[in-house]
Design a protein around this nucleic acid. Structure first.
Lengths: 245, 245
DNA sequence: CGCGGCGTAGAACGGTGTTCGTAACGAACG
DNA sequence: CGTTCGTTACGAACACCGTTCTACGCCGCG
């Protein structure tokens, strides 16, 4: 061992290789937790291997011992966030309300973590927490009498809708550059778009110019509840095949 | 002009700066067309400034004289692709069918150009062709008696649904690496996923393991028509407010 | 013929994901 | 206790990316 006596000065050319190795040991959980923190504060684009490593006081190469790459890190982040989704105790009498409540809950978690929905969109759920959500959705629908095939399709469709809505939401809100008032920034963009729509040639786009206010209404909640209501009503229409469509 | 006499050898250090400047002049249309060609053959990730420039036999800097950056190029690509969407002549009696047909047509074009839907998702349509599509959608619904507010929301919701479905589709099909049989590649991934679902603990995920076949059915068309049917039925339920829900 | 403007593009800057090879560590073992 | 060995950490490097700076060559105009 080349332990240097404490009273001796360090010989020239002998640099302390690791100034403070007393960090807590790198784990996958720690990496994912750090990545989610970066996601929340700086957005998905800022979640780079280098940025996460820097946050942990190390280099990017160190992460690859615990995570196979950026794609896996993103999936792990998604599942960690999905753990925050509060799942309902199924009550067959209220399955439609519960399905809507669960969708709203997912949306709440998704939008709370900025653009995590971009990771969810276009990926097959594999993480345990994500699977638990799908399991409850299936359970709710099956208990409500929805046929298996319809329930399977509906899980896909519902997931697509929730992800898409959350993504659409972030383009209005979370795109604001750091250090700027989100609302003010949003107002600016918003008015720019309405002005553009209003300036369109009215002979070619009569409906668009005539419905500017309806089209650019910023109320994402209303749009979400609208689509959700339609979807659940449509799913429910399949419970009794002889009920008539 | 430093034209060298043909019988003279080129002096040392005097390299022909431009070997073949006889290219057709760079235009925005040419750049966008080339970018779409790269998109079709190699996917959206391969559409880089450098790759497009290389395809045109030039350097990346040359593109910036005709396109403000990558974001604008992607929007231009989207609108160019949107030009391929065949728009129907509105027939108020068939507005629901026409709305579904138009959605299916958009999906056809989207999936024909791999993951162009990723550009559409999470962006406000501004290009002329994209606006024309929205205009027709509004026209169809308004002629069918859909209230303005509902029609505005429905355009958003429909667009989200179509984009999300097209994106979901690409993760099954277009992710195949170049030079490999897409179907074979898809089969491999597909069976891997079903095997994973089947291996799940049946006590925690009884519905998922019990419905593997319904969940992983590769028929994207069926899922699309299912969601589309539900959405249009929901929209139509708003035409006569006193009709009862 | 001279010249100015503009499209072109080489080089470079700062960033990215990922890999390589080496250095340090802890535990097991003689 | 000394050595060895497998594991982990990480600086450096590679091949890319989007974008900008700047010089250069060509064309049309005066």
């Amino acid at each position: 061992m080349d332990a240097v006596r404490p009273d001796m000065p360090t010989p020239p050319g002998r640099k302390p290789r690791r100034p403070a190795p007393a960090r807590q040991p790198l784990t996958q959980d720690l990496i994912v937790e750090t990545a989610v923190r970066v996601l929340d504060t700086e957005g998905l684009d800022a979640v780079t291997m280098r940025r996460v490593a820097q946050e942990l006081g190390t280099g990017p190469a160190s992460l690859y011992a615990h995570v196979s790459g950026k794609d896996e890190l993103r999936e792990l982040m998604l599942d960690r966030v999905a753990a925050e989704i509060r799942l309902p105790e199924p009550d067959p009498a209220r399955w439609q309300e519960q399905l809507k409540e669960l969708a709203t809950e997912i949306r709440r978690v998704w939008t709370a973590h900025r653009d995590i929905a971009k990771v969810s969109m276009g990926g097959i759920p594999t993480g345990p927490h994500l699977l638990a959500v799908a399991e409850v959705q299936l359970e709710l629908m099956r208990a409500g009498g929805v046929p298996p095939r319809i329930a399977g399709l509906a899980v896909d469709t519902l997931g697509m809708f929730i992800d898409a809505d959350a993504i659409e939401d972030t383009i209005y809100t979370a795109r604001t550059p750091p250090g700027e008032d989100p609302w003010e920034y949003f107002r600016g963009h918003f008015e720019e778009i309405t002005a553009y729509f209003r300036a369109l040639p009215a002979d070619r786009f009569p409906n668009i110019v005539g419905m500017v206010d309806e089209l650019t209404s910023p109320s994402g909640d209303e749009r979400f509840q609208f689509g959700l209501d339609i979807l659940v009503r449509g799913i429910a229409s399949y419970v009794a095949p002889r009920d008539g469509d």
